[in-house]
Simulated assay, not measured.
Amino acid sequence: MTFFPDAAVPPGRLAVGVVLPSPAVRREQRLPLAEAARHAEQSGLDLVAYRDAPAGEPSPDAAVALAAVAAATERITVVSGAYAPALRPPAQAAQQIASLQYVADGRLVLGVGTDGGPARWAAAGVPYEERVRRTDATLRLLPRLLAGDGGPQPYEQGGPAAGSASSVPMPPVWISGNSRGTVRRAARLGDGWFPALAPPAEVAAGTVHLAELAAVFGRPAPCVVIGATGALGTAADLPTRAELAAGLATAHGAAPERYAQVPVTGGVREAAERLHSYCGAGVSRVVMTFAGGDWRHQVELLAEVRGLVG
Rank of each mutant, 00 (worst) to 15 (best):
Gln298Gly: 11
Thr114Cys: 14
Val216Leu: 10
Ala211Ser: 09
Trp174Phe: 15
Pro171Tyr: 12
Pro220Lys: 06
Ala201Leu: 07
Leu238Ala: 15
Pro60Ile: 02
Met1Arg: 06
Tyr83Thr: 12
Cys223Gly: 10
Leu232Tyr: 02
Glu212Arg: 15
Arg144Gln: 12
Gly151Ser: 06
Val168Gln: 13
Gly163Arg: 15
Ala84Tyr: 01
Thr207His: 10
Glu257Asp: 09
Gln298Ser: 15
Ser167Leu: 08
Asp115Arg: 13
Tyr102Asn: 11
Ala215Asp: 13
Arg75Ile: 15
Gly280Tyr: 00
Trp121Gly: 01
Arg134Asp: 10
Ala215Glu: 14
Ala70Cys: 10
Arg180Ser: 09
Thr182Ala: 09
Ala68Asn: 07
Val69Glu: 06
Ala94Val: 13
Thr182Ile: 11
Pro54Thr: 01
Ala137Tyr: 06
Val19Ala: 04
Glu57Asp: 15
Thr289Ile: 08
Glu57Val: 15
Met170Glu: 04
Ala281Ile: 03
Val78Gly: 02
Ala254Pro: 00
Ala272Val: 09
Gln298Phe: 13
Ala236Gln: 09
Val19Cys: 04
Gln101Leu: 01
Ala70His: 08
Gly253Asp: 07
Pro154Thr: 05
Val132Gly: 10
Ala260Thr: 01
Val286Asp: 12
Gln42Val: 06
Arg133Gly: 08
Gly106Ile: 05
Val283Leu: 04
Arg144Trp: 03
Gly151Gln: 08
Ser22Gly: 06
Val224Gly: 06
Glu41Phe: 05
Leu189Ala: 06
Phe194Arg: 09
Val225Pro: 13
Ser59Cys: 14
Trp174Ser: 08
Val19Trp: 00
Gly293Ala: 12
Gly148Phe: 04
Gly81Gln: 00
Gly177Glu: 13
Ala82Asp: 02
